[in-house]
Design a protein around this nucleic acid. Structure first.
Length: 644
RNA sequence: GCCGGUGUAGCUCAGGGGUAGAGCAACUGAUUCGUAAUCAGUAGGUCGGGGGUUCAAUUCCCCCUGCCGGCUCCA
C-alpha cells in the first residue's frame, strides 16, 4: 500500500499508510489526547475527523477546548436543532444556521410561529437525536444534484443559496433523517453534544435584508461541559440583574415616559447628578486639551440642512417644524453651528487646528423597534467636537483624539477595540476625498500601532470613521467613541483659512465623540458597575445614618460639614433600626455609610461602613472627608481603595 | 419599520366572562433601637387606550399605543 507523510503542527513528521481517516491517524500516533480533538485542518483547510487522507499533508488538530472547537460544536448543534424541527414540523423550510459569538441559531420558514412550548418540544427531540449518537456524514455532490435534491424536498432557501455558489461541487452533511448544505466541518457524532439550551425565538429577515421574507430564528447555545453551560446561563442572569433599565428605576436615575414619548429620557435628581458630574469632567478635560466650548441652538433653518447635505441624506431621521412660514429642522448632529462659528471671522493657518466642543443635544427619529432604555434613544446629548485643521495636521489630530479616548477609557477601566469603516453606498463626496480621508484614519491607527478591523461600506454618509467599541465587565462590546473624517462639509460651507502663502485654503474636518452620548454612556456605566459607581461619580457619595433621634442634630452637623466640602451627602434620621437603614443605603449602592450614635456624637467621629460591607470602625470627621476626597481626586473605582 | 411576546396599585407580581388581590413602598400610631428588613392599623386601581361580541368584558375578538426579545439601522 502507498505510504504518505503527515506533517504535524510541531513539525514532527509521520509516515503512514494512505487511505486512513484523520481519527485513525491520530489514535495510532498519539492516543493520549486524541479524544479531545474535535476536528482538524488539512493543509490549513478545516476538515472532519472522518476525512480520509490519501496524500502528503500538513495536519493541525482542533481541540474541543479551543474557540474553534466550540464553534464547530455549536454549528453541529444547530444542525441537530434543524433536524428536530424538521421531524416535529415537517412543513418547515430551513434557511441558514451558523454558530455565532455565544451560541448558534437556525432560521426557519414556517407559517405558524414557534412558541416557548415548541422550544421545549424541540429540545426534547434534540435530546433524542443526541442520545441516538447519529454520525455526521459528509457527502460531495455536484451542484446540479444538490439543487435537484433540495428541490425535491421543497427547500427553496437551500436552492437559492446553491444557485449562487460558483463551484461545481458542494458538500452536504447528513445526520439521520436530516441533510443540510454545509461546508463543515462538524463533530463526528451527535452524542458529543453534552450541554445545550434553546434560548429565544425572534424574527429575522432572510439574508438580513429588510426587503426579504421574515423568517423565524431560534437562538441556542451549546458547550462541551454542563458546567460551562451553567456558567454561561449564570452570566446571562448577572447581565439581567445589571440591566440599566432595572437599576435605573431602583436607583432613581431616569425615566422614559409614555406620555412624553418613546426614546426621550428624563433624568431624576440622582441621574442628573451623575450626568452633570460626567459633564463637568468632560468640560475640564476638553479645556485642558485646547478645545473651545460652544453652545448652539436646537432648531436650525431648513436651508442650512439642505446646504449641509443632511436634508438629502438624513431627512427621514430628522424632525421638522414650521414657524411663521419658515421651515426649521431639529438638529440630528451638532456640526452646523460649529461651521458658522468657524466662518464668523477670517481664519489664519496660525489659528489651526481649531477644536470646537459642545455637549450638544440632538434628536434623531430612530425606528420604533430599535429603542432600548438609555442605549438607543431619540433625544440624546453628544460630547461632540469638530476639529478644523490643515491636511498636514490631520494625522496628529487623529492621534491626539485616540490618546484622549484612551485616557478616558482607562479611568473607567474599559478595554476597547477599534474598527475602521469605509465608504457606504449612500455617500457624498468624491472617491478621491474618501480615499484621502480613509488613508489618514488608517495611518493614524497604524502610527499608534492599533490592531483594527475594517468594516467595508460602514462609514457615515459624509466620511469614513474610526469606531471604538468598549468592552464592559461582562465582556460585552458597546459603540461609543467615534472619529469621523469629513472633507465635504468644509466644502459645502466654503470654509477657508489664509495660508502662509497669503492665499485661501480649505481646512479639513473631523467629527468626534469620546463618550458618544451621555445617555448611552451612562447606561453602559450602570451595567458596567452594576450601579455601584466610583465615588467621584456616585450621585450620593455618603449617607449619615443616625442610630436614635437623640443624635439627629449631630447627624445633620456631619452632613453639612461634608456638604461644605462639596461632597454629596444625605442624612437618614428616620425612626428605624440601624440595620434597616444600612440595608436600604447599601441597596442604593452608596459608597460611604457614616453611622452616628452616642459614641460618635461625643467623640466627633462616625463609624464608617463601606458599600462592599467593610467596617472601618470609628473615624474622625476630618479623616473621613480626607478619605472621600481622595477617592474623588484619584477617581478610584472602589471606595476607600482596595488596600484598607 | 418588520416578526413574536406583553401591559393589573408608586414598585415587584398573583388572578380571571358576574366590576379585583399579595408583598414592598406611602400614610397613622407604637417602639428610640449599634451594622442587610420592629410591630400594628389605614388608604390606594375606569385592570394601557378605543371599538366589537355578550344580559354582563379587566378577562374573548379587532385596531391603536407603550414596553420586552430579535431582525434591519445606530451615538
Amino acid at each position: 500500500m502507498k505510504e504518505i507523510q503527515i506533517t504535524f503542527e510541531d513539525s514532527s513528521k509521520h509516515t503512514i499508510p494512505s487511505g486512513k481517516s484523520v481519527k485513525e491517524i491520530l489514535s495510532s500516533i498519539n492516543s493520549n489526547n486524541s479524544r479531545d480533538v474535535i476536528a482538524c485542518r488539512i493543509d490549513g483547510i478545516p476538515e472532519d475527523l472522518s476525512c480520509i487522507v490519501q496524500k502528503d499533508v500538513s495536519l493541525q488538530t482542533i481541540y474541543r477546548n479551543s474557540p474553534e472547537g466550540l464553534e464547530i460544536l455549536r454549528h453541529s448543534t444547530s444542525h441537530i436543532m434543524a433536524q428536530a424541527v424538521k421531524e416535529l414540523y415537517p412543513e418547515t423550510k430551513v434557511a441558514i444556521g451558523p454558530a455565532i459569538e455565544n451560541g448558534f441559531y437556525y432560521d426557519f420558514d414556517r407559517e405558524k410561529p414557534f412558541t416557548p412550548e415548541d422550544l421545549e418540544k424541540i429540545e426534547a427531540k434534540m435530546e433524542d437525536i443526541i442520545k441516538n449518537g447519529l454520525t455526521f456524514n459528509k457527502k460531495r455532490v455536484s451542484k446540479e444534484d444538490a439543487i435537484k435534491f433540495f428541490k425535491s424536498k421543497s427547500e427553496s432557501y437551500k436552492v437559492e443559496l446553491l444557485e449562487e455558489i460558483k463551484q461545481d461541487e458542494v458538500t452536504l452533511y447528513e445526520q439521520g433523517s436530516f441533510t443540510d448544505l454545509c461546508r463543515g466541518p462538524h463533530i463526528s457524532e451527535t452524542s458529543l453534544v453534552k450541554a445545550f439550551k434553546l434560548l429565544s425565538i425572534a424574527g429575522a429577515y432572510w439574508r438580513g435584508d429588510e426587503r426579504n421574507q421574515m423568517l423565524q430564528r431560534i437562538y441556542g447555545t451549546a458547550f462541551f461541559e454542563l458546567s460551562e453551560l451553567q456558567a454561561y446561563l449564570k452570566n446571562l442572569e448577572e447581565a439581567r440583574k445589571r440591566d440599566h433599565r432595572k437599576l435605573g428605576k431602583e436607583l432613581e436615575l431616569f425615566s422614559i415616559y409614555d406620555e412624553i414619548g418613546p426614546g426621550m429620557v428624563v433624568y431624576h435628581p440622582k441621574g442628573a447628578l451623575l450626568r452633570i458630574t460626567l459633564e463637568d469632567f468632560e468640560r475640564k478635560e476638553h479645556l485642558k486639551r485646547g478645545y473651545h466650548i460652544l453652545i448652539g441652538p436646537t432648531l436650525l433653518k431648513l436651508d442650512l440642512w439642505k446646504q449641509s447635505g443632511h436634508y438629502d441624506n438624513y431627512r427621514e431621521m430628522m424632525y421638522f417644524t414650521e414657524i411663521e412660514g419658515q421651515m426649521y429642522g431639529i438638529k440630528p448632529m451638532n456640526c452646523i453651528s460649529h461651521m458658522l462659528v468657524y466662518k464668523s471671522k477670517i481664519r489664519s493657518y496660525r489659528d489651526l487646528p481649531l477644536r470646537f466642543f459642545e455637549l450638544g443635544t440632538v434628536h434623531r427619529h430612530e425606528k420604533s423597534g430599535v429603542l432600548h432604555g438609555l442605549l438607543r434613544v431619540r433625544g440624546f446629548t453628544q460630547d461632540d467636537a469638530h476639529i478644523l485643521c490643515t491636511p498636514d495636521q490631520l494625522q496628529d489630530e487623529i492621534i491626539s483624539i485616540l490618546d484622549f479616548v484612551d485616557y478616558v477609557m482607562k479611568i473607567f477601566e474599559f478595554e476597547y477595540m477599534v474598527e475602521l469603516s469605509t465608504k457606504p453606498e449612500k455617500a457624498i463626496g468624491t472617491d478621491e476625498d474618501w480615499e484621502r480621508a480613509t488613508g489618514a484614519l488608517a495611518q493614524a491607527l497604524k502610527a499608534k500601532s492599533f490592531n483594527f478591523e475594517t468594516n467595508v461600506g460602514e462609514g457615515a454618509f459624509y466620511g469614513p470613521k474610526i469606531d471604538i467599541k468598549l468592552k464592559d465587565v461582562l465582556g460585552r462590546f458597546w459603540q461609543c467613541a467615534t472619529i469621523q473624517c469629513d472633507f465635504t462639509l468644509p466644502e459645502r460651507f466654503e470654509l477657508e483659512f489664509i495660508g502662509q502663502d497669503g492665499k485661501p485654503h480649505r481646512p479639513v474636518m473631523l467629527h468626534r465623540v469620546i463618550l458618544g452620548s451621555m445617555e448611552r454612556f451612562i447606561g453602559i456605566l450602570v451595567e458596567h458597575f452594576a450601579g455601584a459607581f466610583p465615588t467621584w461619580l456616585a450621585p450620593v457619595q455618603a449617607k449619615v445614618l443616625t442610630i436614635t433621634n437623640a443624635v439627629d442634630q449631630y447627624g445633620d452637623k456631619v452632613r453639612s460639614l461634608l456638604a461644605d466640602e462639596g461632597l454629596r451627602c444625605e442624612l437618614d434620621t428616620r425612626n428605624e433600626k440601624i440595620s434597616f437603614k444600612i440595608r436600604e443605603a447599601q441597596l442604593q449602592k452608596i459608597p460611604y455609610l457614616l453611622i452616628a450614635g452616642n459614641r460618635e456624637a461625643s467623640s466627633e467621629t462616625v463609624a464608617v461602613r463601606l458599600r462592599d460591607g467593610r467596617d472601618l470602625g470609628q473615624i474622625s470627621l476630618e479623616k473621613v472627608m480626607k478619605m472621600i476626597n481622595e477617592d474623588v481626586k484619584q477617581k478610584r473605582l472602589i471606595p476607600g481603595g482596595e488596600g484598607i
